[in-house]
């Protein structure tokens, strides 16, 4: 589904350049549930932005769903984002003057789906996430967990192949975080590839595969079976702190 080959990315601020990604090689198959971890500055957000076609890379190759993504025009990028990818953000990023249903329906609006149809579909998705009674509520009338669920519904409505989540639980308390993760797990069971960026070990431990970034390289790749040992290491890390 996703193939990265020797991806490099630098940021330039004035005369300084910051080499963030230093040759990432990565393969994520369809239906995987992956988390990206790393200390701040390790390049995890940058990687997610590249995956989401929100940013360009300098060197290497990125194949998404079999297609090379490189130097895309904004228009094509928008189309790809809309059709292949779903985004979930830490701060939810709902449009404040649209109610829950309209927020969920927004990606379909950009696809040109008629208002009636897209609102009906939005209601369906809200129903799936248990938010139907709140469909007419504005974002500021919803709790954090509800907002994130609306955002998830919005990510799902365009039936994407990949869902990218940037710290989806970053702004939520533990219990709500677990609820959200349960929802994501459910989505994963339907066969959608999910990639989340997180710095919380317990959240990462719920995924099938953890990619640990270190100084712009992949430091560690912990796969399903090894999660038990990851948890052990994680506990050790906590002790040393």
């Amino acid at each position: 589904m996703i193939t990265l080959k020797n991806i490099h990315k630098s940021y330039f601020t004035g005369s300084n350049s910051l080499h963030v990604l230093k040759g990432i090689d990565l393969e994520i198959n369809q239906g995987e549930f992956v988390s990206i971890m790393g200390s701040s500055g390790s390049g995890k957000s940058t990687l997610l932005n590249l995956l989401g076609i929100l940013d360009n890379y300098d060197k290497g190759e990125y194949h998404l769903d079999g297609k090379l993504i490189r130097n895309m025009s904004e228009r094509n990028a928008a189309k790809y984002r809309n059709e292949t990818l779903g985004f979930i953000f830490q701060s939810f990023n709902l449009i404040s003057f649209k109610n829950a249903m309209e927020n969920v329906a927004l990606p379909l609006y950009y696809q040109g789906v008629r208002r009636k149809k897209r609102n009906a579909m939005a209601l369906d998705y809200l129903d799936k996430l248990g938010l139907k009674p709140w469909a007419e509520h504005m974002p500021n009338e919803l709790s954090g967990g509800q907002k994130q669920r609306v955002a998830i519904a919005r990510a799902l409505i365009s039936q994407p192949k990949v869902i990218l989540a940037d710290e989806p639980t970053g702004a939520l308390d533990t219990q709500t975080s677990y609820e959200v993760m349960d929802i994501l797990k459910g989505i994963h069971k339907e066969g959608i590839t999910i990639i989340i960026v997180t710095h919380e070990h317990d959240i990462a431990a719920m995924t099938d595969k953890i990619i640990k970034l270190k100084d712009g390289n992949i430091g560690d790749l912990i796969i399903n079976g090894d999660l038990a040992s990851f948890k052990k290491n994680y506990a050790k890390e906590l002790q040393t702190l």
């Binding site: 228009r75 984002r81 696809q111 365009s158």
Partner: peptide
Amino acid sequence: GVMRAIGATPR
């Protein structure tokens, strides 16, 4: 930014 992330074209 959100609009564009979820598929709004520049146009």
